[in-house]
């Protein structure tokens, strides 16, 4: 059983959604990002998405765009991102880490080399925004063969006819994007999200996490009723941005991130307990 599968099963056994937290590798600098990453499980994160910064994040809103640029400016590279996972794994053998980003930095690293390095570092899964099912030969199939989970996004435009193709090579969990839009935008219809989660669950036994637009503990509480996981990124990344002084981290930066995560985790725990 992969770490991802085990963690979702454990959360389900506790009758709560898994909190999936997104942080940008190298933001605002390597040392601070490592401290943020290392403290996420204690703050309440069940699954970690570690963003691989990219110069042209077409599916991201401003918050994650600038987080990526801060990371790149501080000298973040793919090797450094993988080293962060390796360091994390020395202290935590159970919390799953999913690398999330865009294809080009992986392609340039070399697909086979990347898969081997990610495995060796202790990465559990990949989310690559610009690799739809039509391009599965590129990375998805070799990653699956190597034992990495490949988590695909399903969206409001993924209709009933297309869904099986999207789910075919998906593993670990399914990431349902709550809206047509970029990260950090507003969710248009809450009812539609619950409906979509049920529709996807009709087609797969995999856990379904929802993400894009979840911002508050209250959101976590509401969406956590239907979804197996809640993916949160923009507000976490904003906590970094808001505590910087002249682009440099302050003593509040790491704790501010962990406070946001703790608050979201509390909301997620209330999702199914409150009537």
């Amino acid at each position: 059983m992969s770490r991802i599968t085990a963690r979702f099963a454990a959360c389900t056994a506790e009758n709560r959604p898994a909190l999936v937290t997104y942080v940008m590798a190298g933001d605002p600098d390597l040392e601070t990002a490592q401290a943020i990453l290392d403290g996420l499980p204690a703050a309440g994160a069940d699954v970690i998405e570690l963003g691989m910064p990219f110069s042209d994040p077409m599916a991201d809103g401003v918050a994650i765009q600038v987080a990526g640029h801060r990371a790149l400016k501080s000298g973040q590279t793919m090797r450094r991102t993988l080293a962060m996972v390796e360091n994390f794994r020395k202290k935590d053998a159970e919390t799953p880490i999913v690398l999330m980003g865009y294809y080009n930095p992986i392609y340039i690293f070399g697909v086979a080399d990347f898969i081997a390095a990610a495995k060796a570092a202790g990465v559990d899964g990949l989310i690559v925004v610009d690799l739809p099912a039509e391009e599965d030969e590129e990375l998805c199939i070799p990653a699956l063969e190597a034992g990495l989970n490949f988590i695909r996004l399903a969206t409001p435009t993924t209709d009933e006819r297309r869904l099986p193709a999207v789910l075919r090579n998906t593993s670990g969990f399914v990431y349902y994007v709550t809206m047509t839009g970029i990260t950090g935008a507003a969710i248009k219809s809450r009812a539609a999200v619950g409906e979509a989660v049920r529709r996807i669950k009709h087609h797969t036994d995999l856990p379904v996490a929802v993400g894009f637009g979840i911002k508050t503990a209250e959101d976590a509480q509401v969406f956590g009723r239907d979804a197996d996981g809640l993916a949160v990124g923009t507000v976490i990344v904003n906590a970094v941005a808001e505590t910087l002084n002249d682009g440099k981290p302050t003593e509040r930066t790491v704790t501010a991130v962990h406070d946001v995560v703790a608050s979201l985790a509390a909301g997620a725990r209330r999702a199914r307990s409150a009537a």
């Binding site: 399903a154 969206t155 993924t158």
Partner: peptide
């Protein structure tokens, strides 16, 4: 090479 939202 596009996001799933745009694929359909």
């Amino acid at each position: 090479f596009v996001a799933e939202t745009l694929m359909p």
